[in-house]
Design a protein around this nucleic acid. Sequence first.
DNA 1: GATGAATGAGGGTTCATTCAT
DNA 2: GATGAATGAACCCTCATTCAT
Lengths: 207, 207, 207, 207
Amino acid sequence: MTTRVRDAQATRARILKAAVREFARHGFSGARGERVARAARSSERMVYYYFASKEGLFRAALESVYASLRDAESTVRLDEAEPLEALESFCRFVWDYYLKHPEFIGLVNTENLHQARHLRRSPQLDELVSPVVGQLGALLERGQQAGVMRAGVDPAQLYLAIASLGYFYLSNQHTLSAVLGRDLLAPGHLQAHWLAAVQMIRRFVAL
Amino acid sequence: MTTRVRDAQATRARILKAAVREFARHGFSGARGERVARAARSSERMVYYYFASKEGLFRAALESVYASLRDAESTVRLDEAEPLEALESFCRFVWDYYLKHPEFIGLVNTENLHQARHLRRSPQLDELVSPVVGQLGALLERGQQAGVMRAGVDPAQLYLAIASLGYFYLSNQHTLSAVLGRDLLAPGHLQAHWLAAVQMIRRFVAL
Amino acid sequence: MTTRVRDAQATRARILKAAVREFARHGFSGARGERVARAARSSERMVYYYFASKEGLFRAALESVYASLRDAESTVRLDEAEPLEALESFCRFVWDYYLKHPEFIGLVNTENLHQARHLRRSPQLDELVSPVVGQLGALLERGQQAGVMRAGVDPAQLYLAIASLGYFYLSNQHTLSAVLGRDLLAPGHLQAHWLAAVQMIRRFVAL
Amino acid sequence: MTTRVRDAQATRARILKAAVREFARHGFSGARGERVARAARSSERMVYYYFASKEGLFRAALESVYASLRDAESTVRLDEAEPLEALESFCRFVWDYYLKHPEFIGLVNTENLHQARHLRRSPQLDELVSPVVGQLGALLERGQQAGVMRAGVDPAQLYLAIASLGYFYLSNQHTLSAVLGRDLLAPGHLQAHWLAAVQMIRRFVAL
DNA sequence: GATGAATGAGGGTTCATTCAT
DNA sequence: GATGAATGAACCCTCATTCAT
């Protein structure tokens, strides 16, 4: 009994994981149920058994990547290190997450192509929203009181700026690499970009 | 005869325009030849007549949006106004272009999903690259000499930063609006974002 | 224990009743096990538990509607009233039964589509045949002796004629209503039809 | 060119003919696109090319059998022979049509299962309605004036009665044969039935 | 006796493309 | 140069049913 349930959950999890990859790589329309089934070492039938439709599978995949990001963000502590250090750590964390989780970028881009249709309808939407913006606000407050950050910075805008600098660079790495004629993911270029980006964020909140 | 040729070119142009919209809205796999044909008031057969395949049509659409951006950027003058003013104008120009041309964002995102496969193979690639990064370099030089900009800023990185702050915000407007619970395209929020972004860019190049 | 058995039988009965409706409404191929299960407030699995297969369920449903008709017909008395009155009463009874039991018509039509495959194989076939034809024969005899009916009327043919006039009208009510441009089930039209039909039957057996 | 067009029409016609058979034999849900394609010596793809969907194919099949009946009925002359003779001829014609065109009965039954959904939506509905009821009215008039038919017979009801007696017998031949224990289509029984039916109709309109 | 989990086979339909003038 | 007719290959999905306790 327990074994079967565990198997069932394992199969479901394998399918979901494969779906995340498939949708991230090929978008919604380009995703193939058969590839998902094969990658999950299961059958196309099971995909429909657990997720009812291609759309249902996509919704689950999308929720899954948002939940993973939120879980990862929930481990971040912004209240311990010195404010500017904490801010830099957070930037590095966010960018590293994007770098290590291309499936997040792929799924979010796909969802934007669909005008966030699935996300808006998700009953889990509230749970998926990360509390990290609030923590950034507290950090800005602390930095101000420590005399190392200026007043008047909107935490949400700060978050967007940090996200922008990492997301855009990685999401568009292929066209940018082609157009600029250099491999943006080569360690040297990546380092240089993070350095410039950190500097930008620091200067943005500096006095 | 001339009329016929002009008609032929006009048909081709209508198909191309319709294809740009279609690919931008639905991605490559989601795009439908029939919708392109209908929107162009032509037939599916004509699409193949002029562009040989769906891939050929996408390539042409992609080249078309890059060419349009390059043409627009070629009208920009960065050597006339006071350096910091010129920089801000350029930011506003770029962001306004993204705002007014969602099809550019849509096609570029789609091309990145495909790892820039089409762009890399395009024989027109060099022609599509905008000379604007060079102009930004000259502007930085001028700003330095005028004593209002610091040394050591990579023009390409500056360009990426400007692009990031506009592109990310617009490309991800739907998911961000859903997650943050506010309409990012509402005039107030848009203004506030551009303001913060300009400030960020200015502080980045400032002494 | 008794309760459990009664519950089991109740579940079986609910499934059977739901199946009768489902097959009558959608035919054999169009019937859905899931709808039967839901309508019976049971599970698809239980349907198979009690009836083994879709075909088994259909057979049971078919036998059930024939048994119901036979039970209803068994209450009819043709030997009491004045012969022509009794005949008219019988017509009214048959037609009223068809009217009130559309599921009978639906299942019988479906079974005919399948060339009575299930009925012919039913071991209960003999039990399902109504003794009403025999009673009609006796009635004809009585009418003859009373000098109000002619000789030479085949009771089976009389039965078929009565059935025809009701069954055809109700079974084909939808196409006929569409073609004739009037609602055949509207009280006025229904009354008029029964009246004409009764007259037809009376004139058929009259001297 | 002409050849191709003829081929195209021939293919379409073969598919339609095969569809009529398939739907008549198996109902809507039971009908298989693949069987239609095979019987028409064509491909399943062509079925969709010409008829867009299973529903479109059914609609076309249904309209086709109604059109065939109307065409056949349009050849009938009710104004030449002696009134009662003409009426009997008409009965024989109708019943013979049902007998020779089981696909008509099959499709009409299927359409009634679907509550005439397709027929009601058919833009050709008016064209499909046979003018034969009007002709029956004229015949009744003529019979009256000739002093061989009574007044007060509704031509539509007469038509329904004639149709009932043939349609019911043939449509339900399989269940009736099983229940009555005799083959209703055996020449002897068929003859006897037509005889009784003609008598019934004659007596119905007689003085 | 009763039931949740799983599934092979095939269903209708669409897609991008080619044929044949 | 331009176009109507035709199509092979998949695609998403559903159905009736069985497995395994």
